[in-house]
């Protein structure tokens, strides 16, 4: 008799199943469980069905926060991606300057979020902060604590300062992977620098850019610490993004059911947008092909 099944193989899968269960499935299902209940305390809970979901979808505060979040994430992408490419393009291709540039670029990446927030909170202050004071001396009225536009700009600048390096390093590695003969061939073809960028560098950067865009989108969509440290989401609610709204709901108001439903929607939005980016960029690939 020939055995095609060996049940012992399940033991080999078990470690992965356990890890995934504890890291993803169980927490996720707990959230799903919470999202359909109204919880007062650990022993007092009622099943409420989809009520939380319906309520959230109609919540004005969440709508505002969602719109702010989208505007913020797209602003981050619109600045960091082109800037990162530009930095990568202007980096030297060989010599000791390469390592110097790499170290300088890597430095911001090593700094924790809350430290970044604190740095900019101090540096932007009018009285003791270098930038805040300098702007004041230039006659620019800058105050992130009272002016929503200033707060926005500061949070954006913080993110650009912190994360453009990531895009630049990714692009730099992509550029380094292009053999020199491509550039040589382009010179022989008398191609302009723009044509070299458009037809050689950009197509070759596509895959690293995809990774860069996805990482920056997901990460900026979850921004929490920086605006929290800077102004606590203010002035008013002007820099209160989704994750802060969620935290307020879950911890501040102890509205667990509502927060759970919101988390799931939040998660689905990130998943959906990432999927859209991914298919848009890879689909274009097969269009070209």
């Amino acid at each position: 008799m020939q055995r095609t099944h060996n049940n012992r193989a399940w033991w080999l899968v078990l470690p992965v199943v356990i890890v995934v269960a504890f890291s993803a499935i169980i927490p996720m299902m707990t959230v799903v469980n919470y999202s359909v209940q109204d919880i007062f305390d650990p022993s007092t809970r009622f099943f409420v069905g989809t009520e939380w979901y319906r309520e959230i979808l109609r919540d004005e505060r969440l709508h505002d926060s969602l719109i702010r979040q989208f505007v913020y994430s797209f602003a981050v992408l619109a600045i960091e991606i082109p800037l990162g490419i530009a930095v990568a393009l202007s980096m030297p291709r060989k010599g000791f300057m390469v390592s110097l540039c790499m170290i300088l670029l890597a430095l911001p990446l090593l700094i924790p979020w809350n430290v970044v927030g604190t740095i900019w909170q101090i540096i932007g202050r009018e009285d003791i902060g270098l930038y805040g004071w300098a702007l004041g001396q230039l006659g620019i009225d800058y105050n992130y604590a009272s002016n929503p536009a200033d707060a926005w700009v500061t949070v954006l600048v913080m993110d650009v300062w912190h994360w453009t390096s990531l895009v630049a390093l990714l692009c730099y590695s992509g550029l380094r992977a292009i053999p020199d003969v491509y550039y040589q061939a382009a010179r022989i073809d008398r191609a302009s620098p723009w044509a070299v960028f458009r037809y050689i560098q950009l197509p070759k950067l596509k895959s690293v850019l995809l990774i860069g865009i996805m990482l920056r989108f997901m990460d900026s969509f979850m921004i929490y610490t920086e605006p929290f440290v800077l102004t606590g989401g203010g002035p008013g609610t002007t820099t209160t993004f989704l994750s802060q709204t969620l935290t307020q709901m879950a911890i501040g108001q102890f509205d667990l059911g509502r927060a759970a439903a919101f988390s799931l929607i939040y998660f689905l939005i990130i998943l959906l947008v990432s999927w859209l980016f991914y298919t848009a960029m890879t689909h274009q690939d097969s269009d070209d092909a």
Binding site: P179, A185, P203
Partner: peptide, 9 residues
Amino acid sequence: YQQFINYPS
């Protein structure tokens, strides 16, 4: 060239 160099896109 020895490598096949064309504009990829």
